[in-house]
Each structure stands twice: as C-alpha cells, then as structure tokens.
C-alpha cells in the first residue's frame, strides 16, 4: 500500500468515525423518545427486581444510624408547600389536622378510617435511616410511626390482594383540582417489611409539611420517590394498570422505574 493510499484510508476512517458518532448520538435521542425502545430498555428493571429479590433476604434491613448522624439539612423534594396542596391544607397543618382521616379500602375485609390519634395509639417503630434521592443525594433522618403491616393486619387483606396503592393529597406539577392526585404503589413484600412504616414524626417532631404532613410512607430499601407524602388513602388492589396512567405511580407515569431498588 502506498503512503498516499494509506492517508486516504485514514482520513476516510476518521470521517467515518466522526460521522457515525453524530448518527449514533442523534439515534440515541430518537431511540430515547420511541416508546417501544423505552419498553425494551425498561426490561432491565424486571431483571434488576428479580435478581435483587432473589439475592436479598426478604427481611434484610436497611442500615440504621445513630442520632448523632442525623443530617443537619434534610432536603425536601417533590411537593413541599401550598403550590402542590389543596386550599386550606397549610391551615389544617397549623391546627394539627383535626379533620384528617386515613381511609383504608380496596381488597380488604374490614375497610377502615384512622384518625391521627388512632395511628399514634398503635405500637410505633422509630428508625434513623438514609434517604437516597433518585437525583443522587442522600440525607439521614429519624422516622416514627406504625408499621404498615399493623394497619394491613387491622383491615385484613383479601386473598387476591397484590399491591398497596397510596393516594395522596398533593398534585404534580402543581395543585389544580385534586382530580389527578399523587399516587405510588408497592408490592406485599415491601408492604410487610419491618422498616416499612407510616411516619407521623420526623426527628422526634410532628412531620413538617415539606416532608409530607401529617403522614408519609417510608420504604427504606427503595429510592426516595417511592415514599409517598401527604397520605390520604391506602387502597389494596390486585392490579394498578387502571390507576393514573397505569404504571403504578406519578413518577412511574413520567418514566421512572416502578421498582426503585437501584
């Protein structure tokens, strides 16, 4: 091969690489927007869930910390104030939510409504855990409240029950009329995990509004976005594809994974 021919070949290759890079990057954008390709990539979530569930001892606890390790600043994300909440919610918070009730229904034997004092009367668990946001940051905080399992045992699950859906008072991206409230869902493995609690206290004080007053979910083996705030109703279901846009939660409907163990 002559020197000239080799240079031509090199230039051809370099142009080819630059060209294919541009095509590949443009292609990645187009693929990102294609629903079928997103479904394909999203298949990894099922693999992750099955592998984590297979390797994880069901009762394995998330690490708990000492009081001295609680973060000075615990960032709040998602809905935090009146912008995302129904009119009058902040005033009700100031009065200690006298009219607030937690409705528990769906595939249960004895549907029930709980007041805050009903929940406070139940045996509570306090846990100091690390909250890992899907964005990448972590904060350590203490949470107190009854295990979700205590509530579920109270109402009694029907045999066909598979998922627990949490309906909330807030709306994203902003509160309009309460027609599309924030929701989340978990399966029974996480629902009956000992660290899955309904927290009414944070760091020994009543839950602040920014963190979901009066009651929020803690699911310590998943990312922060699973931990629904401003709880209003717990619904026991056998499928969630007819709720919201069908993917099991408000963030899931926006493209995030239903199983947020990673």
């Amino acid at each position: 091969m002559s020197r000239h021919a080799r240079l031509d070949r090199r230039e051809f290759l370099a142009a080819g690489i630059a060209g294919s890079a541009a095509i590949v990057l443009g292609g990645c954008d187009r693929l990102s927007a294609a629903p079928t390709f997103r479904e394909f990539l999203g298949g990894a979530e099922g693999v992750t869930r099955r592998v984590q569930r297979a390797l994880l001892w069901r009762g394995a606890l998330a690490r708990e910390y000492r009081a001295a390790e609680i973060s000075g600043t615990f960032r709040a994300n998602g809905s935090q104030d009146a912008y995302n909440l129904p009119p009058g919610y902040i005033d009700a918070a100031a009065e200690g939510f006298p009219d607030w009730r937690l409705q528990v229904d769906g595939l249960v034997i004895r549907p029930a409504r709980f007041t805050l004092s009903d929940l406070r009367a139940l045996p509570a668990r306090t846990q100091i855990t690390r909250h890992d946001c899907v964005e990448g940051w972590s904060c350590i905080g203490g949470w107190t409240g009854p295990p979700l399992s205590a509530i579920l045992d109270r109402v009694g699950l029907r045999p066909e029950a598979r998922f627990i859906v949490f309906h909330c008072a807030d709306e994203l991206p902003r509160y309009v009329d309460g027609a599309n409230p924030f929701y989340e869902s978990i399966d029974l493995i996480d629902a009956y995990h000992p660290q899955t609690i309904l927290a009414y206290e944070m760091n020994g004080r009543p839950l602040p509004v920014a963190h979901g007053a009066p009651l929020r979910l803690r699911v310590e083996r998943q990312l922060g976005y699973k931990m629904a705030k401003f709880l209003a109703r717990i619904e026991v279901v056998n499928r969630f594809d007819r709720i919201g846009r069908g993917r099991g939660g408000t963030w899931e409907d926006d493209g995030y994974e239903w199983y947020a163990g990673i």
Binding site: Q52, L55, L56, W57, A60, L61, A62, R63, R130, D132, G136, E220, R221, Q222, L223, A260, G261, I262
Partner: peptide, 11 residues
C-alpha cells in the same frame, strides 16, 4: 454503582 442501590445496601 451497586453501593448506591438501597436494595443492595440492605442485602
């Protein structure tokens, strides 16, 4: 990467 996973961290 796995050390960022709350699920793996529990296990």
């Amino acid at each position: 990467g796995l050390t960022m996973s709350p699920g793996v961290m529990a296990a």
